[in-house]
Computed example of a mutant assay.
Amino acid sequence: MEACVTPYPKTDNADDVSGGELKPFPERLNDVPPRVSSGSVPGITVELFQEDNKLWQKHLNAYKRVNKIIDSGRYRNIMDMNAGLGSFAAAIESSKSWVMNVMPTIAKKDTLGVIFERGLIGIYHDWCEAFSTYPRTYDLIHANGLFSLYKDRCSYEDILIEMDRILRPEGTVIIRDNEKEIMKVKSIVSGMRWSTKMVDHEDGPLVPEKILFAVKQYWVAGENNSTSSR
């Protein structure tokens, strides 16, 4: 179990707070976490953390222009499948919702400790396996760069079927990835009763990253039979 435990940073002084003091919530959401300011996470600087925060505020504002009910309270249970520094959850912070931040076990940087220090909920998971959802399902699932991360690990079909399983009917999926992976995903979900809309990056169509919005539909009794008989 030691590999799955996120330890507190060590301190040599009994009077010091291990890793550094944390501000009360919600200020700590956007304050630089002690693990970042102390350089405990390789490759994550204070400047990179602050840029990531601004970037996800920008991305979320772009999402809201397409999906205008993100702030309405309609999405109570939210999951970020590739949470990074937790900036998506920090941007969407609302008393009407909570976000499960998932740190893929194959991610290049382990930032779960940063997520915890921001006052957010997080967990490790390998998306080639089933996710334990008991006792809840999710209203909104966000996947940033997830399919590029797993393209050589397991099938997109398996990941998408798992997403479908944990998503409530009329729940929403937002997938952000490069255009090649988005088109592969779009071709699969067309057979999953998801209605989809693909949009360009907020900086314009020349950016190779695209966003796919999808809504899981109710399965209507008898619809399969009428479709197959045509």
Rank of each mutant, 00 (worst) to 15 (best):
M1V: 10
E2V: 03
A3P: 02
T6C: 13
P9Q: 00
K10E: 14
K10R: 13
K10W: 08
T11F: 08
A14E: 15
D15R: 06
V17A: 06
G20W: 08
E21P: 15
K23T: 04
D31K: 08
R35M: 12
V36K: 11
V36P: 11
V36D: 03
S38G: 02
V41I: 15
P42Y: 07
P42V: 10
G43H: 01
I44G: 00
T45Q: 07
V46R: 10
V46H: 03
E47W: 06
L48S: 11
E51K: 14
E51T: 15
L55I: 03
L55R: 12
Q57N: 09
Q57V: 10
N61Q: 14
A62V: 15
K64G: 01
R65C: 07
V66F: 11
V66Q: 06
N67Y: 06
N67L: 14
K68M: 12
K68A: 11
I69K: 08
S72I: 15
G73D: 09
R74S: 11
N77G: 04
M79Y: 00
M81S: 10
N82M: 06
N82S: 12
G84Q: 05
S87A: 13
S87D: 12
F88G: 02
A89L: 07
A90M: 03
A91K: 10
A91V: 00
E93G: 01
E93L: 08
S94D: 09
K96M: 13
W98M: 08
V99K: 00
V102M: 06
P104K: 05
G113P: 11
G113I: 01
F116T: 00
E117V: 04
H125E: 03
E129F: 05
F131E: 00
S132F: 06
T137M: 14
T137L: 14
Y138E: 01
Y138G: 00
D139N: 15
L140M: 12
H142P: 00
H142N: 04
G145N: 13
F147W: 06
S148Y: 07
L149S: 06
Y150R: 04
K151D: 10
D152Q: 06
R153Y: 11
Y156W: 03
Y156M: 11
E157K: 09
E157N: 04
I159V: 14
E162F: 00
M163W: 01
M163Q: 12
M163F: 07
L167E: 01
P169V: 10
E170G: 02
T172N: 11
V173K: 01
D177M: 00
V185L: 03
V185G: 02
G191M: 11
M192E: 00
R193Q: 08
W194L: 10
V199N: 05
E202H: 14
E202N: 07
D203T: 08
G204D: 03
P205C: 03
V207E: 14
P208M: 04
I211E: 04
L212G: 05
F213L: 12
V215K: 10
K216Y: 06
K216E: 04
K216F: 08
A221F: 08
S226M: 12
S226W: 14
R230N: 05
